[in-house]
Amino acid sequence: MVNIIWVSLFIIGLLFAAVNGTMDKVNEALFQGAKEAVTICFGLISVLTFWLGLMKIAEKSGLLRGLSRLLQPVARFLFPEVPKDHPALGYILSNMSANMFGLGNAATPMGIKAMEELKRLNGGKNEASRSMITLLAINTASITLIPTTVISIRIQYGSVSPTEIVGTTILATACSTAGAVLVDRYFHYRRMKKRM
């Protein structure tokens, strides 16, 4: 599916450029897109290096295990395949709480670390496991409590009440997260059926 979407984005774009005479823009886009990707990755180096270092201390001191115990009831429901007290749960909880407070910079390293742990649980295969898909679904739906960036944009444009959208955002995000979990479950059971 990813392959099809990826190729379609290119081919549709190229066909369009041919018909509309925007080929010069496409040439520019090739370099611009690649450059942006590398810039993002370089930006990630600083954040990833710092947080992964810090989280290693949290892991060794048992803090992460403590956090995962806190999450136990939710985790049992969301990630039934992950064993009790596994460090992956600690990273998942850190990832979710960073997202809730709109701290994307901190959320990404925790999410990646959680993925790494989940991959290890899955025997190191290069295939996404059930728990990995669930974690991803929760992240794309992004449970937000405080949409920091949006609030700052609203302040910038002189909103009378910059935070009035906090309530609607929490409601909408709750819907999309619940939706993501349900859809994820549905696809999981469909996969199980196919395998039988």
Partner: peptide, 9 residues
């Protein structure tokens, strides 16, 4: 790159 091509075209 794919997304940028799609958008810019």
């Amino acid at each position: 790159v794919a997304i940028t091509v799609f958008r810019e075209s």
